[in-house]
């Protein structure tokens, strides 16, 4: 019995590190679907409210950027999100079908010349709130890592 329980525990551990993929059409109404799914996966990891807030915010910012800037809100284009939880870290990849952008060229939204602008804080917040952030070479995929403990 003990052995069976142990096997069940190991299976749960293995399942937790499985990669999960969520594909959505390029419409803002689907953003919550992605963040809700990821947060429900994190619930059993006893993540703090603060860290859950950060993950939710960064996922929603990344998916929105993919919809609006990457896929130009063309419904037929897909935003692909893949995430997995391993070693007390969640890794989240968000990819669009656009030609990409250079995140290094984005102006600093805290600069006095830009602080009053009505946009341009999404990527900045992701860089500040996540533990690791990386873009692929073409700039149409972001990978974000958050330590959950």
């Amino acid at each position: 019995m003990l052995k069976l329980d142990r096997l069940g525990f190991l299976k749960r551990l293995r399942d937790r590190s499985k990669k999960i993929q969520i594909n959505i059409p390029s419409e803002n109404k689907y953003i919550k679907k992605v963040s809700a799914r990821i947060l429900s996966s994190l619930a059993s990891h006893r993540i703090s409210d603060e860290k859950a807030f950060d993950v939710k915010l960064c996922v929603e910012e990344a998916v929105r950027n993919a919809i609006v800037h990457g896929n130009h809100a063309e419904r037929a284009r897909t935003v692909k999100t893949i995430y997995w939880i391993k070693d007390e870290r969640i890794t989240i990849e968000v990819e669009d079908e656009g030609s990409g952008f250079d995140h290094n060229l984005l102006p600093d939204p805290t600069d006095t010349n830009y602080i009053m602008r009505n946009s341009g804080r999404g990527v900045y917040l992701i860089k500040k709130l996540m533990d690791e952030v990386e873009f692929n070479t073409s700039g149409n995929k972001i990978t974000m890592v958050k330590k959950i403990k």
Binding site: K56, R64, M116, S119, G122
Partner: peptide
């Protein structure tokens, strides 16, 4: 309970 970058932008716009 929650504010995203669009929410921050909206508050900036109201202020402006």
């Amino acid at each position: 309970t929650y504010v995203d970058s669009s929410g921050l932008a909206t508050l900036v716009e109201i202020l402006k």
